[in-house]
Every structure is written in C-alpha cells, then in structure tokens.
C-alpha cells in the first residue's frame, strides 16, 4: 500500500511534466518524480524494528572483533541508502542545469510558456 502511494506520487510528477505548459512547472514535475524514486528505494530496504546501518561502540567487541547480533540481524539495507545518497546530489546538479536553461529561455523569449516558445521559433 505504501509502495502504491509512492507510485501515485511518481504519477503526479509525470502528469505535471507531461500536461503543464509552464516550463518551471515541468521542472517541478521532474523534481517530484525524483523524490518518489528516492523514497521508494529507501522503503525497499526498511524492515520493522530496524536500526540505522551505523555501528555503535557498544555493539562492537574490541577483543574478538565481533559485531553484536542485534546489529547484524536488525540493520536496514545500506545499499539503497548509498545509491540514493549520490542520487540526491546529482538531482541538485541537474536542477541547477534545468533552471539555467529556463532562465536563458525566459531572457530570449520573455515567457515561460512552451507553446509560445514553439510559435516564436518560426
């Protein structure tokens, strides 16, 4: 059910990117899709009663080098977290690129409306 809600969020972003005329609204739609994908990947690694994948000092035995079973059995999946960590920063970079394209287009045509831009191109 939570996965379905996440997919609904993705679909809202897709609707915004496909239907809207305003250029900045299209950028917002792409951002909403990014949030939905990040949330879905993190949700996929979660399980009930999980702990964060960071080992505490009390869970480590320095004599034998063993990690406590409470961490080994309960830790959430660290792999999606590592993937999403890079994806968030890439999202900020691509957002800056899209916004700079929007600003340059506004300066050229004086509007954010993509149908107007198509007409002016001739």
């Amino acid at each position: 059910m939570l996965y379905a809600l996440c997919f609904l969020l993705f679909m809202i972003g897709l609707y915004c990117a496909v239907v809207k005329k305003n250029m900045v609204k299209i950028v917002f739609g792409i951002m909403i899709m990014e949030y939905a994908v990040n949330l879905f990947l993190i949700m996929l690694g979660y399980h009930f009663g999980g702990v964060a994948p960071i080992i505490d000092k009390s869970q480590f035995d320095p004599g034998t080098g063993q990690i406590a079973g409470s961490f080994l059995n309960n830790s959430v999946d660290p792999l999606p977290q590592a993937l999403v960590l890079t994806a968030i920063v890439i999202g900020l970079g691509s957002l800056a690129l899209m916004i700079s394209i929007c600003i340059r287009t506004y300066e050229k045509y004086g509007t954010f409306d993509i149908t107007q831009i198509r007409r002016l191109k001739g």
């Binding site: 990040n38 993190i42 949700m43 979660y46 999980g50 702990v51 964060a52 994948p53 960071i54 959430v76 977290q81 999403v84 960590l85 968030i88 920063v89």
Partner: peptide, 10 residues
C-alpha cells in the same frame, strides 16, 4: 526509515 545520512543530505 532509519536513514540518517540521507536525512541530513536531503
């Protein structure tokens, strides 16, 4: 969701 790294970055 027990992901403090992602929360700080986000």
């Amino acid at each position: 969701l027990r992901a403090p790294d992602i929360a700080i970055t986000q």
